[in-house]
Design a protein around this nucleic acid. Sequence first.
DNA 1: ATGAAAGCGCTAACAC
DNA 2: GTGTTAGCGCTTTCAT
Lengths: 356, 356
Amino acid sequence: MSVDERRGRPTIRDVARHAGVSITTASRVVNGKPYVQRELVDRVRAAITELGYRRNDLARGLKVRRSRSIALVIADLSNPFYGACAAAIEETCRSRGYSLLLCSSDEKPDIEQAYLQLLLQRQAEGILLIPTDRDHSDLVDEQTAGIEIVAIDRPIQGLATDCVVVDNDVAAKAATQHLLDHGHSRIAYIGAAPTLYTNVERLRGYESALAGAGRAPIVRMGAASVGSARRAAQSVLQMKDPPTAIFTMNNLVTVGVLQAAHEAGLEVPRDLAIVAFDDVVLADVLRPRLTVIRQPARELGEAAARMLIERLEGAYSGVPRIVRLPTTFVVRESCGCHAETQLEGPRGGSLQAARS
Amino acid sequence: MSVDERRGRPTIRDVARHAGVSITTASRVVNGKPYVQRELVDRVRAAITELGYRRNDLARGLKVRRSRSIALVIADLSNPFYGACAAAIEETCRSRGYSLLLCSSDEKPDIEQAYLQLLLQRQAEGILLIPTDRDHSDLVDEQTAGIEIVAIDRPIQGLATDCVVVDNDVAAKAATQHLLDHGHSRIAYIGAAPTLYTNVERLRGYESALAGAGRAPIVRMGAASVGSARRAAQSVLQMKDPPTAIFTMNNLVTVGVLQAAHEAGLEVPRDLAIVAFDDVVLADVLRPRLTVIRQPARELGEAAARMLIERLEGAYSGVPRIVRLPTTFVVRESCGCHAETQLEGPRGGSLQAARS
DNA sequence: ATGAAAGCGCTAACAC
DNA sequence: GTGTTAGCGCTTTCAT
């Protein structure tokens, strides 16, 4: 064993020595740069395979001042909606040559904050953030210090960034209207954290539809888990004049409401119609099949990743963009319909100025 | 703007200058090391906040030769089973001070291979791998070169590593036996890729139960998606003497089989009993509720991460361990039962030598 | 076409 | 206690 094959992984220095060339030449070959003789290229290549050399990207990043890594701070990976989103992000980042640092905030502001600090230390070039429900204006400094941030699913409070969301209000309004068209007059809304952006928007759409029909809203909030959603549904179903239809705010809530409906022995949609925001896996084998607003989870992630990378590579550096992606209203049976139809949500995913 | 606040993020050198101390002292304060005067500590701290200094972990890693990052190469993030697994891994890694590099192989060997190379370059200290269905003996060199690998969900072909799986065969056998106990004699098995480890193991359990009862197996393989699972179920249901029960190999297959059963107008469990491997979200609001083998997805991820970190920190360096975690048989109604019961699978998650 | 040398930001001997 | 200095592995002028 010669001196250049000692402890640890071989460095480019080892490769150079082994091939009998300078470090510069070795580096050129490693990075596929021109201006190296055929023969030297071969010698270096041979040394590389022989030694099992692999470039150290950390050292490289230190020198070129680019980590080529992007961080994803996600709310909850075990939620299929975010899972699909993350999968699309991962693909997009990889295809553009970036690595993905994964962080799960579990919707907790303090975990998120700690992560954001860590990611700065780790030299993430950009951050894809599904922000927790708190003020983020403390990040203004970091932003001006050069780190790019793109928000997903909800805008970041107190920070102007690129952002990609879905047409929550429009979709919720259309779905509620659909229930009204079926003749329902008492339609309940069961939502998660009251101040959560998506909840606020969806509630707005729901209320706007009801107002248009001169009906009174029936709202239950704070259903942050399947269990609490179930309890919320129970409470609403035990009213003196219970609703004949329920609009559920997300997939967790949907499961809880379905459980409560079963327990109460209600037949859907005869006794209780249901329309859900967010598709769920077994929606089409449920009896009756579930009518849902399907979110473009993958497109959401992909768009966000693309926008971030555009910023990182200087392809865009203007004012913060907000992209609103269309949902799909999948009409099945739980709303009272018989046939399955898919309606494209209004407005395409065009770049729009911030909404009114 | 003084000279130490010029372009880019401030370095420890800037901090030292700003505080009027040496770089070493600044470094000591940054890393919370002892032997620094109270007063200097304060001065350095002040400089840090004033400058907005953040340690560059890449540079640090280069020096201390540790990246403190772990890579997760996962099959499919949009599958809730892997999502839950990933969430647990993320938590475990964070709590131990490691960052997580996320890579999705999409079950494709070439993507996986490219990632493995990249991760080496990125100086990942260890790899958590849900391996694709190929021979991995090319990784032997990397392994001896010092990178630690732990397999999840299935062992790595051609590579002896720590590994954590569930009791596939035992669980499948018990579930099949349950169907036999209900009086079924024609029980079909619908599985994914024929050579996939989990498929092989589950099939083994299924066949062993049938053999014990003197019944003939009815097997359909290659159902790698919901659609193909549905077609497989259709084909099996159109046999001259169709099965009266189906054992589904994973959550994708389950959905496809359920679809096929609906289409065929079969009433479950009267016309067709179903037992599924892997829990699904709406299993308990389906009518009838679905009897499933629940996998400990989070525990799987957590155990794997813990084992990897033990290796990285020298807490264990013995022979490859294989951990087999118990599943839970959740008896609901699709099997023909009426009550809901949970049976702990046999054998705890004890460390065992490689299986026979 | 090739190489010598400087230095990215940091830590850790080692000297004072 | 504090500071000087030598690299970690790499890229990149700038000579030659």
